[in-house]
Design a protein around this nucleic acid. Structure first.
Lengths: 217, 217
DNA sequence: GGTTGTCAGGTGGCTAGTCCACTGGCATGA
DNA sequence: TCATGCCAGTGGACTAGCCACCTGACAACC
């Protein structure tokens, strides 16, 4: 291993270097970050259009080719969608949407996705039953006596569970499936779930999720 | 929440269109796929180098700029790593490695990741108990009477569950955590799991996972 | 009035050619 | 022998230009 630096007083690392190799970021990478920040800063929402390439390139002081690479990277990341003859459109940038695409979930069997989501929901239910504060759990009960819907219930449960990782995974799978219908069977499941969580019973909460998504079809 | 359901039974969709807009693939996207396939076909392993850009561009019949966009996309996907003055190097392409980075799991709390993984494993356990064929389940039993290790057991369970989605999610979380130690408590969990699966008891199998990862710490 | 066809202008897609910056190996010479 | 310096090969980035595509306005037609 040839040494490249001469005077080696004190700060050298195990390979005899005093300096880090100065990881150089390529222009298109910085650009991608910059544009992503721009989208954020401007509060652009899905569907909004970025300025035309020529204009954007001039404004950023780079060539169209470089900008194009940056846009390709952003498109690969799912941050934008570039349409020929139209422009670069901001996309839904939630972890859910992007990861679902990355995982190629859209080609998988529907039922399998539902099964996976059930597992995630069971985990959320368990966490909600064991972690949540009693006062927050009351949100599971509807105000006027009518039962909570599927979406409402799980929004509550997710808040109670306070587990970003599980929530993210759930988002991922949501993007690859559809919201279940509000059938009587579903309502029974949701009631059982709410009861179990209010009773601080994690095992029962998790169990109540079984078949919630897969039975109703 | 945009739904992206594929099969549209017979007629027009919600916007009155009978045909999808015919998603046109750009050259750089096809190129990226093509190169990725090339890596696969050639059996290139992490560290191997792709041909030089000029050479590759000529061989593929595209300009360097376009090839460059494709390489940028592949780099964004984590398939390759491009180094100035060196070339394009093949990277570790496992779903686990790439998705974990994409999810930014490394910054999350360890315990939370473990909790999430438990939920996934519970789902796998449940699927294994209800789906697997009896003959395959025998693999859960060690040949010489010694207990299966954590890794062995779950490899079996994953095969039994035959749920690529859950397996992928598990891989994702594995990459963000560590393999648990082989403690007595762990062995009890694994025994209970194997017993439940052999008894075709999904609920018990799922339950047996509770605390498998989180109790031992 | 409503429908249809046309077309211009704006947009991204892609190419070719050129020069710059970086890396690594090798010939050189102390 | 070995440190030095050079240089061929590599990717990075730019410029200039043409092509393909999409949209919307508007004319032409029922």
């Amino acid at each position: 291993m040839p040494l490249r630096i001469l005077g080696m007083s004190n700060g050298a690392d195990e390979r005899g270097r005093r300096f880090q190799p100065l990881r150089r970021e390529r222009l298109y990478e910085s650009l991608a970050t910059h544009i992503s920040d721009f989208i954020e800063a401007q509060g652009l929402t899905p569907g909004d259009r970025l300025p035309p390439e020529r204009e954007l390139a001039a404004e950023l002081g780079v060539s169209r080719a470089t900008l194009s690479r940056a846009l390709a990277a952003l498109e690969t990341k799912g941050r934008i969608e570039v349409r020929h003859g139209v422009g670069a459109l901001v996309r839904d940038t939630s972890l859910a949407a992007t990861t679902a695409v990355a995982l190629g979930l859209e080609v998988r069997e529907r039922d399998e996705v539902l099964l996976a989501r059930e597992a995630i929901l069971a985990g959320l239910a368990r966490a909600a039953a064991s972690n949540g504060q009693a006062s927050l759990k009351l949100a599971l009960l509807a105000d006027d006596g009518t039962p909570r819907t599927f979406v409402d219930t799980w929004r509550c449960v997710r808040r109670l569970a306070s587990s970003p990782v599980l929530a993210d995974l759930d988002d991922t799978l949501v993007a690859a499936s559809v919201t279940p219908e509000d059938t009587p069977a579903m309502r029974r499941h949701l009631d059982e779930l709410a009861t179990a969580i209010l009773a601080d019973d994690p095992a029962r909460a998790a169990l109540s999720v079984t078949g919630m998504l897969t039975d109703t079809r």
